[in-house]
Amino acid sequence: MSLYDDTVLVLKNHEDLGELRQVYLDHLAAHPDGMWKACTDGHITASALVIDAERGRVLLTLHRKLRMWLQMGGHCEPGDDTLSAAALREGTEESGIAGLSLLPGGPVRLDRHHTPCAWHLDVQYAALAPAGAVEAISDESLDLRWFAYDEVAGVADESVVRLVEATRVRF
């Protein structure tokens, strides 16, 4: 199964993702290249909110280009077999934490936002950090920092706040 087919299946099987789900499916139906950064009309991205449930906190990255505190995430790559694998890869690369595991149940939410390269149709997962996890800043980040759940609204935009809330409900 291709990454495109896996993504369509994930979206079709998660009706709880809201009205954007159909927008994403329509986009993919109209754009066979809609998984890739080269699709200038917009493309699917995968992200992972890294959580330390034991300490009630999330790890956010100060994105180098956007200069915003965000969850880990980014573009799908040809080596990604599944959308969840893309989210886990992004989470691991950008957090520097080995041994992340995605929260069961599939994506937590969807978020569509414009970036300098195109519209991102982000499929957002949550990833549990292993006990004693130590983060490491990647080239894509200016900083990494753990924030208590209730601190996120003071540093991040509404999209990240909604992701944290949805993750807490799921968890």
Rank of each mutant, 00 (worst) to 15 (best):
H120V: 13
E135V: 05
T115K: 12
V123C: 14
D111M: 09
V23T: 15
M68E: 14
T61L: 10
A153T: 02
L66H: 13
P32H: 11
G91L: 00
H14W: 04
D111V: 12
A86P: 01
I51N: 01
A38H: 10
Q71L: 08
W36C: 07
A30S: 15
D157Y: 03
G42N: 06
G73W: 02
L3T: 11
H120T: 13
R170V: 05
R162H: 14
V161H: 06
A38K: 12
D41R: 08
E135R: 09
W36E: 01
A153I: 06
R112W: 06
H75I: 07
A38E: 10
P116H: 03
W36M: 10
Y24L: 14
D33H: 12
G42T: 05
H27P: 04
R89Q: 05
S159E: 11
H14Y: 06
W36S: 07
A29F: 06
H120P: 12
G42H: 07
V8I: 15
L128D: 05
A166L: 06
H75Y: 04
G99P: 01
I44Y: 01
L60M: 01
G34H: 00
L128R: 12
L20I: 08
G132V: 06
A131L: 11
F147D: 00
R89G: 00
A87Y: 00
A53W: 00
S138P: 01
D139S: 10
L102I: 05
E158V: 14
D52W: 08
S138Y: 02
E77A: 11
E165Y: 10
V8T: 13
G34V: 05
G73C: 04
Q124L: 15
V134R: 13
A118D: 11
V123A: 10
K12C: 13
E158D: 14
Y4V: 13
A156E: 01
L49M: 11
A136F: 06
R67E: 13
S141T: 08
T92H: 06
E94I: 04
L59Y: 03
P107Q: 00
L59Q: 03
S101W: 02
I51L: 10
R21Q: 14
E158Q: 14
Q124V: 15
E158K: 13
D41S: 12
D6K: 13
S141M: 04
S95K: 02
H63W: 09
L59I: 05
G74C: 03
I137N: 05
A156Q: 06
E165Q: 15
R21A: 11
A38T: 13
V123I: 15
L25T: 12
L3K: 10
A98P: 01
D26P: 09
G18H: 08
T61Q: 13
